[in-house]
């Protein structure tokens, strides 16, 4: 125990108290029994995936150059010449895809179990903010490669911001750094992607987990007092198994389906088809089917509903206690999302 003493001498904390807190908050944290099912334990997957995104993102930054002339070439260099570059880039790119999937799984569980119900409404809102930040990271990251598809997706994507009532125009100019998509846009998106959004994400993640720990894990509605087990070791390993599944899948996909390069961006040639990443397809289709301003307003209304869902759900529940609104809305949302996404790929 010499080392422990050496450390405690330099960090004179109350060790017994530290162990006590650690045991209470982490090791012996009571986990309701239903979390033994893997699909109830998906909340940690985004955490691990984000950690991987940070590590691979730092490695990519060793070589990436954020200028319109050099960006594409630097990504090509990473993918084709840097040792394991394709793999690191593959994990980063696939990581963003799997992060979205992991977030959807986590949301699905929370939504169907009404884990957002009082007193956890604020944590839901923070969750929605985290989802938004993740999408922001995806969007800004996607534009960095500066190939034809990403350049035009950025152009069209930022253009749709223009349709947001009141703040649309200034927001567009802020995002693009001018009227058009230029070198300014790339610099901004790069800055958002590496210096602004990740710390925000970490901050909100901390708050999210902090609130979770204050409240403890949510119990199933109608099955309160079902009993519990300790966080460590069983739940911890459950989470690790699920995480390993994601990591193994991630690495496999990065090797067998590494992301390509596409054609370098050509601002003068508009491609016939401009599509965003698949997880934006529902938004893409909504904006395609409806006039831009109406589409944007509808999406914003849906966004507001999403943010305040715990309160809306509670409001409805008080009036119609038998109505399982979350089941209906959740099922419709998931099926719509899947149908629209698949449809966009096939058509």
């Amino acid at each position: 125990m010499k080392l422990k003493d050496w450390i405690l001498e330099r960090f004179p904390i109350n060790y017994e108290r530290f162990v006590e807190i650690n045991e209470k908050v982490f090791i012996k944290e009571p986990i309701p029994l239903h979390y033994k099912k893997w699909f109830f334990a998906t909340g940690a997957a985004p955490l691990i995936l984000i950690a991987l995104q940070i590590v691979t993102g730092i490695l990519l930054m060793f070589y990436y150059i954020a200028s319109p002339e050099a960006a594409y070439e630097s990504v090509r260099y990473i993918s084709q010449e840097v040792r394991f570059g394709f793999w690191i880039r593959g994990i980063h790119r696939w990581g963003s895809n799997l992060l979205v999937i992991a977030l959807l799984l986590h949301m699905t569980r929370v939504f169907f179990t009404r884990a957002y119900r009082r007193p956890r409404e604020l944590n839901w809102i923070i969750g929605v903010i985290l989802l938004g930040l993740s999408f922001g990271l995806s969007l800004t990251g996607y534009s960095l490669i500066q190939n034809q598809v990403s350049y035009w997706a950025t152009t069209v994507g930022t253009n749709s911001v223009n349709a947001i009532p009141l703040i649309g125009k200034p927001l567009l100019q802020f995002l693009r750094g001018g009227e058009e998509v230029t070198a300014n846009t790339l610099t901004r998106f790069f800055t958002f992607h590496v210096t602004l959004l990740p710390p925000l994400l970490l901050l909100f993640m901390f708050v999210h987990i902090f609130i979770l720990r204050l409240h403890g894990m949510a119990e199933l509605e109608g099955k309160e007092g079902e009993g519990s087990y300790a966080f460590y070791p069983e739940h911890f390993f459950k989470v690790i198994i699920l995480t390993l599944f994601f990591v193994a899948t991630l690495s496999t996909l990065a090797v067998i389906l590494p992301p390509g390069l596409g054609e370098p961006a050509d601002p003068s040639t508009t491609p016939a088809v401009i599509k965003p990443e698949w997880y934006f397809y529902p938004v893409y289709i909504a904006l395609k089917l409806m006039p831009m301003h109406i589409g944007m307003s509808v999406l914003m209304i849906l966004g507001v509903i999403l943010v305040f869902w715990p309160f809306i759900d509670e409001f409805v529940k008080r009036r119609a206690p038998k109505l399982r609104l979350n089941y209906i809305v959740g099922t419709i949302a998931i099926l719509t999302f899947l149908t629209v996404t698949i449809w966009e790929i096939i058509v």
């Binding site: 895809n97 999937i101 699905t108 598809v149 996909l253 698949w278 790929i345």
Partner: peptide, 23 residues
């Protein structure tokens, strides 16, 4: 939740794979 979770994982990984191939 179980069915939707499996559905989301399977379908969306395939979707992402198809899209990744396109790149």
């Amino acid at each position: 939740i179980g069915i939707f979770s499996v559905l989301l994982i399977v379908v969306l990984i395939i979707v992402a794979g198809v899209e990744m191939r396109k790149t």
